[in-house]
């Protein structure tokens, strides 16, 4: 597998036309129908726009951190990448072909693209032992001959830092963090080329986290594993991922190289996130002013305008689109920070 980061970070060099990115989202929209507020017993529904015009390219070998407001659509975006949810608008492509189509063709996609779910416990069958859970993808995809399954399971357990006797236990017998490690072992079992992970290391102590992050970073840097990694921890994002995309209410509001974006965020929401990251012995940061708007009732103009410290009159009428903002970066703001 080859790394091809140049196309992502250097805008002067157009991507080779022969090689489609691993994932490409073009104006992707996902609307959920939910009960209308105050509808009582009537069955009125209303559309909740969980994703609203998302554009994203993930090149082979890239590592992308997806961060943002809780409820902004990160998990929904991942479900679209995995073909579990069909977008209600726009196109979602895997190597240039519709994801849902590729997924329907057979087990190849499921083997190549592994997933660690946010609800790790809910994603594991409680009636299966940990050993059986990890053996399942090994058998299903024929990764190793039957005689070697037990050995490989033991290897995977050790890799994610679980004791060997965990194989005989059931998910209910493991702590929250241990269950998360099982989910990672299971995802790595099929030897995927893409790992899509939703809060895979949250809820782990920092030393266990360090073991898993160095493992994942090694796989990404040395084996060319493509990573899409949802995290709330900006330190994790900056250690593991070369690029970052920041979401707010169904949209990507800023993307670019992680270090550059975190050193000088251009979008005021990105700046607020950066400022809220925990810091030793500092007072807890003041919350952003204003109410988080409802995805059912977005304000006109910029959806961050009700809480934005930089808001200008035109922000309430014009809806900013993601546009280029310096080297490899893009921002959806009419008055980005640092633009003077």
């Amino acid at each position: 597998m080859m790394k091809d980061m140049s196309a992502m970070t250097d805008p002067r060099q157009p991507p080779a036309p022969t090689r489609a990115p691993v994932f490409e989202l073009i104006e992707v929209e996902k609307v959920f129908q939910i009960r209308r507020p105050g509808a009582g017993l009537r069955r009125d529904t209303v559309g909740l726009r969980a994703l609203d015009g998302v554009r994203l390219r993930v090149e082979q070998g890239a590592s992308l951190a997806l961060v943002g407001e809780s409820g902004s659509g990160k998990s929904t975006l991942l479900r679209v990448l995995l073909g579990l949810d069909a977008p209600t608008g726009g196109r979602a492509l895997y190597h240039g072909r519709p994801i849902r189509e590729v997924r329907a063709e057979g087990p190849r996609f499921a083997r190549d693209v592994a997933m660690v779910y946010q609800d790790a416990r809910g994603s594991l069958d409680p009636r299966m032992t940990i050993g059986a859970l990890i053996a399942e993808p090994l058998r299903h995809f024929g990764i190793v001959p039957a005689g070697q399954v037990a050995g490989r399971v033991a290897e995977l357990l050790a890799r994610v830092g679980l004791p060997a006797d965990a194989a005989q236990r059931y998910p209910a017998g493991l702590s929250g963090g241990q269950v998360r490690r099982v989910a990672i072992a299971r995802a790595l079992a099929s030897e995927p080329s893409v790992l899509v992970a939703d809060e895979a290391v949250s809820g782990l102590d920092v030393s266990t986290q360090a073991q898993l992050l160095t493992l994942l970073r090694g796989l990404q840097r040395d084996m060319g594993l493509t990573l899409v990694f949802i995290t709330h921890d900006l330190g994790v994002a900056s250690y593991l991922c070369e690029e970052i995309a920041i979401m707010y209410l169904g949209r990507i509001v800023e993307t670019g190289p992680t270090d550059a974006v975190l050193a000088a965020p251009a979008h005021p929401y990105a700046a607020a996130l950066r400022a809220a990251a925990p810091r030793f012995f500092e007072p807890l940061p003041e919350p952003l002013p204003g109410e988080i708007p409802s995805p059912l009732d977005l304000p006109p103009g910029c959806r961050f305008s009700g809480r934005c410290p930089m808001v200008q009159p035109d922000c309430q009428t014009r809806d900013p689109q993601l546009g280029r903002h310096g080297e490899g970066r893009a921002v959806a703001c009419l008055h980005p920070l640092g633009a003077a």
Partner: peptide, 9 residues
């Protein structure tokens, strides 16, 4: 653990 840092705070 499941919240973004602004809501966490």
């Amino acid at each position: 653990s499941a919240l973004d840092v602004t809501i966490q705070a």
